[in-house]
Each structure stands twice: as structure tokens, then as C-alpha cells.
Nucleic acid binder design. Structure first.
Length: 575
RNA sequence: CGGGGCGUAGCGCAGUCUGGUAGCGCGCCUGCUUUGGGAGCAGGAUGCCGGAGGUUCGAGUCCUCUCGCCCCGACCA
């Protein structure tokens, strides 16, 4: 391929809309162009990369017995009514009508059609397990797209669905997919990928893991234990706060004029934040007012709280709603309130310590000597607190590290969440119909591409791993009109391509600086420079993207040396 | 959905307060010179100033409405 005819011009300056590294290089290097918020076209250079990523994914899915299929993007309402998700998913799913007034939707995940296929094509336990997968477009009307390809509305995803006769079989397969994912990310050149325990969100089901690229650019927060390897998304991470029992003191009302926040109250009374219990109020569409009692030094984790409360919308409560329940904003506690007026959620954190400060439900007063068990009676403590940097690991007690991560893949054990309502059954060897046990597994292709840039770049552009590089070799020819320069470049281009090597030749009559800058933006691993100078020195100059080392290679040795270099680079990425 | 910012040439921006024939840099086209980290000179093309209403003799600029994009948060396989 010649640069002079390559579609996509590089940009010298950073477009205003880009702030994230990968987004900046994706635009400057002419990888993508935005069509609308969260909707992008891929230009040739990016499409070449995603094609390679997809090939790696295919190979690894096929290795574990996957069968590639292709399901539609547009589906009828009826199919999604079967699982109930037509109603449980909100505005994230795009719905519309066709000319006959039928309700249609754009697929954002494909459990329903996958189940539809398998329930009619697979009938016997003898055929199980099976796994089908596809690499296909998804549309999710995200409330906020961001960061170039990191969070988009339309994207390509590999999604896989497995079907089993037992939980044990699912678990065994789940770990195979887990291994396949590790191989995929390794082969794609990602280094800092970790799997973390995760929330299941709209997918439902039981166990799930997310594969996260650890990077400050990530949207998710992870808690990682450097000691024992405990790893979890903040949404599900938990900790065991140490118990600090004290002799219970009597409950007493004290005046705390104008002291409303935990900050103010704690310093006014001279106690640490961890010796206070604060009230946080929400309104849940199903449960009404929710009163969360949590230690003053902790934050309520809404994802965890949602799980405790069950399905429905959750939002912070207004002051009027709090007052209606008899609580006084700024001075609230459940003590002495009619608990039938709200749903009380007591976080575990307030049960491991005694003698807390909490609100007196009276303007200007707090209670001291508050002891949950004694003063509230029987309460079932829940875990709704966010884990913090340095909190003890729930497994080994060592302090946890907090990091950011980009979710590039996830795997779920779904159980019978879809097979049961949708009648996806098989005949077992005892002659009985049983629902299949399911798993599902996703990888975002475009996000993976952007993640590689986040992890592998320098000031000048991406540094592509050879496995997914748009081309393997970049030829820069400086002053091509000079004796031998243009001819040599053309010959190298011809010979390397004939040998099956992917070559991008900058055949423009641009100055060295321009060619090098563009080559850096394209991030191609092997760079060959042909110029008057290199010819005088006996050949072409070889260098690796991201390295300062330079070598002169005689023209006749270029092909074998390129082959050798590619092999060496590929070997580094073997799982 | 809440908060903030921005829409002027392909890209980056000035001009808007204080209304008077739309500018700069880069890129693009032509020619010459140049060719190892984003060259020089000369000439040239490019704008529904996001859109619609309004005020005015006159609107990129003032007023009203509207659409879009980005960032933070909420939200989120």
C-alpha cells in the first residue's frame, strides 16, 4: 500500500474534542472519524487493526469449540418480551417501528436470539455443551459517550453464549473461556490485564468477571490486593472492617448547634469520623424512601445498595421526602423513628464499633453513645459501603490498592435466567426435560483497540504490537528523486509484498520530518528508511517503533531480516 | 438527567463586549528551490460564522428559540 493513496489524512494539531490519549491519536493518525456522539467510522488503518483483533478472537473461540454464527441487529419486540428484558431495560435500548407498525429494537446484547436458536436446534443432552459466538454490531444508547472509542453507542462486539447440562459443566467451560480471554489479550499485546469479580448488571445471573486493562485512563475503579491476589470491581468489592468493641455507654442527647455535616459534628465533639453514623437517603421506585445508616467515614455504594433493594430505579432523596418520614436532614438517625415509613438499610460498618455519634432527629442535637444492636433492636446488617484505598483485603487482611481500569471483556455465569423463561430445554438421559444452564462472554473490539493505545504509546503516537499492527513494515523514502532512492524503495515494497509481508510505503515527496511524524502516528513496528545517506552507507536503515536503535541493512538482506524480526516480535506475544 | 464549556475554511484559532463588505496559522492547488524529525519564496482556491425566527438601513456580533459536540457527575454487559 502506498501512502499517497491511503484514505485518511493525519492531523498536525489535536482536534478540540479529544482529551484522552487514545482518542487524540485515533483522530490525529486518521484511524477514526466521528459521525455523531459515540458513533464512529473506522478508516482503513483502524479497520486493518480490528480485522486482526477479530481474527485472534476467532482463533481462540474456535479453539475452545466455539461455532461462529451471525445474529441480526434488528429484532422484534416479541423475542425480548420472552425474557422480560423488553420492559426491564430502559432507554439504553433503541426501539422503533417498521412500516407495518411492528415494534422493533436494536440489539445491545444477544442472549434472546442465541437462546432462540439453541432451543430449537439442540434437543438432547448428547449435543451439549455447545457454544455459539458472533462478532457483530451492537447499539446501546448510552447516556454519555466519552473518550473516543472507549465508551461509544455503536460498536463491534464478540459475544458468545454457552449451553450446559449442569452448573459444574458451566463452571468448567467458564474457566476455559477465561483462559481463552487471557490468551486473546496476551496475543493482542496487552500487558496489564487483570480479571476482577464484577457486578452482573442487566445480564443477571450469578458469578461474573470483568477483564480490565489497568490504566489511569480507565472508567472503572478496581480494588486489588498485592498480597493474596484478591481483585474486584469497586461495585462489588468488600472488606472486613476490624471490630473495635467498647463498653456501651448510655445514649445521650447533646447540643450541636449549626453542626450538620459529619465533618462539623466530628470536629465539634472531638471524635473521629469513624465514630459517627450518618444517614443517607434515597428513593427507590419499588421500596419508597430508603434510609441507609452507614459509618461517617464511608461512602454508600449505589451498585451494592441496588442489589440489596432489588430491581427498580434509585435516586437521592429530597429534603421534603426525608422530613415526611420524621427525620431531620442534617440531624437524622433511625432512633425513635417509625421504621414502617421507610426501608432501613444498616451497613455492617456501624455494627463493628460502639458508642457512635448520630443524629437526634431534632434540629441542633445529636446523640452520643449510639449502639446499633441495643438502640435499634434486631437489624440485619447489609454491605453497601464502598471499599477505600488501604482498607483490609477481605481474604488476607492486607491493605488493598485502588486502581483504574478499562473493561475490555467480561464473562458471566447466567444459569437459567434466560433458558427458563424462554423454554430453552433439553431432554436428559432420564427422559426428563430440563432447562439448559447458560454462560455468556463478551469482548469489545474497538475498546480493545483503544486500550492498546492507552497502554502502548509515546509522545508521537501509538506503538502497535506486531500481531495487530495495521502493517508490519513502514518504508520511508527521503528525497525519492535522488539517484536510487525511489527505485530502491519501490523494489523493497514490491519484494516484501510479494513475500506476503504487509508494507506501507510512504511514496510522497515529503521531507523526512513529515514522513517520520506520520510513521510515528501510524505506529507500524518495523521502519525502513531509504535515503541518499543510507544508500551511501550500504543499504537501508532499520528501526523499531518506540526504539532509538538504528541499523543499516544491506538491500539484499532486507527480506530475510524483516522475516526474522517479525518472527521475533511475534514470539514475544505468544501466550 | 444536573453542572460547565464550545459551535467561524479540512484542522487549530482570532473577531462577538462596543453591529458597518470574514481574518490568522497550518493544511490544500500551481511553479521554482529544498529533502534525516512537521522547509523557503511567489501565486491561488476554500466559508449558509450550527439552524430558525426577531431587532436594525445594516447582524458572525444584539434578542428569542432550537440543534449539535466535548468535559465533570449521575447512569452503564
Amino acid at each position: 500500500m502506498r501512502v499517497s493513496h491511503l484514505v485518511g489524512k493525519t492531523l498536525r494539531e489535536t482536534p478540540r474534542d479529544a482529551t484522552l490519549t487514545s482518542h487524540i491519536f485515533l483522530l490525529r493518525g486518521a484511524y477514526v472519524r466521528q459521525v455523531a456522539s459515540g458513533i464512529y467510522s473506522l478508516l482503513p488503518i483502524a479497520r486493518r487493526i480490528t480485522a486482526k483483533i477479530e481474527r485472534i478472537i476467532r482463533e481462540e473461540m474456535d479453539r475452545i469449540g466455539g461455532q461462529e454464527i451471525l445474529m441480526p441487529v434488528v429484532m422484534p419486540r416479541e423475542l425480548w418480551e420472552e425474557s422480560g428484558r423488553y420492559y426491564s431495560i430502559g432507554d439504553e435500548m433503541v426501539r422503533f417501528k417498521d412500516r407495518s407498525d411492528n415494534d422493533l429494537l436494536l440489539g445491545m446484547t444477544h442472549e434472546e436470539p442465541a437462546v432462540q436458536i439453541v432451543r430449537s436446534e439442540v434437543e438432547s443432552y448428547k449435543q451439549l455443551p455447545v457454544m455459539v459466538y458472533q462478532i457483530q454490531t451492537k447499539f446501546r444508547d448510552e447516556p454519555r459517550a466519552r473518550g473516543g472509542l472507549i465508551r461509544v453507542r455503536e460498536f463491534t462486539m464478540k459475544d458468545a453464549y454457552s449451553f450446559h447440562t449442569s452448573q459444574e459443566d458451566l463452571e468448567e467451560y467458564y474457566s476455559k473461556v477465561h483462559e481463552a480471554y487471557v490468551r486473546i489479550f496476551k496475543r493482542a499485546g496487552l500487558r496489564r490485564v487483570v480479571d476482577v469479580s464484577a457486578d452482573t448488571g442487566i445480564m443477571g445471573g450469578g458469578v461474573s468477571h470483568e477483564f480490565m486493562l489497568v490504566t489511569p485512563a480507565g472508567e472503572d475503579t478496581l480494588l486489588l490486593c498485592p498480597h493474596c491476589g484478591y481483585r474486584a470491581n469497586k461495585e462489588v468489592a468488600y472488606t472486613n472492617l476490624p471490630e473495635e468493641p467498647e463498653e456501651p455507654k448510655p445514649l445521650e442527647k447533646v447540643a450541636t448547634p449549626e453542626q450538620k455535616t459529619i465533618e462539623e459534628v466530628a470536629s465539634f465533639l472531638g471524635v473521629p469520623h469513624s465514630k459517627t453514623a450518618k444517614a443517607v437517603f434515597f428513593v427507590h421506585s419499588d421500596k419508597g424512601l430508603v434510609f441507609v445508616l452507614i459509618r461517617g467515614d464511608l461512602e454508600v455504594n449505589e451498585t451494592k445498595l441496588r442489589k440489596v433493594l432489588g430491581p427498580g430505579e434509585l435516586r437521592p432523596a429530597h429534603d421534603e421526602e426525608i422530613e415526611e418520614a420524621g427525620a431531620v436532614p442534617g440531624y437524622a438517625s433511625p432512633v425513635g423513628l417509625d421504621t414502617s415509613k421507610f426501608t432501613l438499610v444498616v451497613d455492617r460498618s456501624v455494627t463493628v464499633v460502639n458508642n457512635l455519634v448520630t443524629g437526634a432527629n431534632e434540629e441542633g442535637y445529636h446523640l452520643v453513645g449510639f449502639n446499633v444492636e441495643r438502640d435499634l433492636g434486631e437489624v440485619e446488617p447489609a454491605d453497601v459501603a464502598s471499599v477505600r484505598q488501604g482498607d483490609p483485603c477481605p481474604l488476607c487482611g492486607q491493605p488493598l490498592n485502588m486502581e483504574r481500569g478499562i473493561e475490555i471483556g467480561n464473562i458471566f455465569q447466567l444459569g437459567t435466567k434466560y433458558s427458563e423463561p424462554m423454554g430453552c430445554t433439553y431432554l436428559d438421559n432420564d427422559g426428563k426435560k430440563k432447562p439448559m444452564i447458560m454462560g455468556c462472554y463478551g469482548i469489545g473490539v474497538g475498546r480493545l483497540l483503544a486500550s492498546v493505545i492507552e497502554e502502548s504509546h509515546d509522545d508521537y503516537g501509538p506503538i502497535w504490537p506486531i500481531s495487530i499492527a495495521p502493517w508490519q513494515v513502514q518504508i520511508c523514502a527521503i528525497d525519492q528523486k535522488k539517484e536510487g532512492v525511489g527505485d530502491t524503495a519501490a523494489r523493497l515494497h514490491r519484494e516484501l509484498e510479494a513475500a506476503g509481508i504487509e508494507v506501507l510505503w510512504d511514496d510522497r515527496n515529503e521531507k523526512a520530518g513529515v514522513q517520520f511524524a506520520d510513521a510515528d502516528l501510524r505506529g507500524i513496528p518495523i521502519r525502513l528508511v531509504v535515503s541518499k545517506k543510507t544508500l551511501k552507507n550500504g543499504g537501508v536503515e532499520f528501526s523499531l517503533r518506540g526504539s532509538k536503535d538504528r541499523e543499516i541493512w544491506p538491500i539484499d538482506e532486507v527480506l530475510p531480516k524483516v522475516r526474522q524480526t517479525i518472527e521475533k516480535l511475534e514470539a514475544e506475544l505468544l501466550p
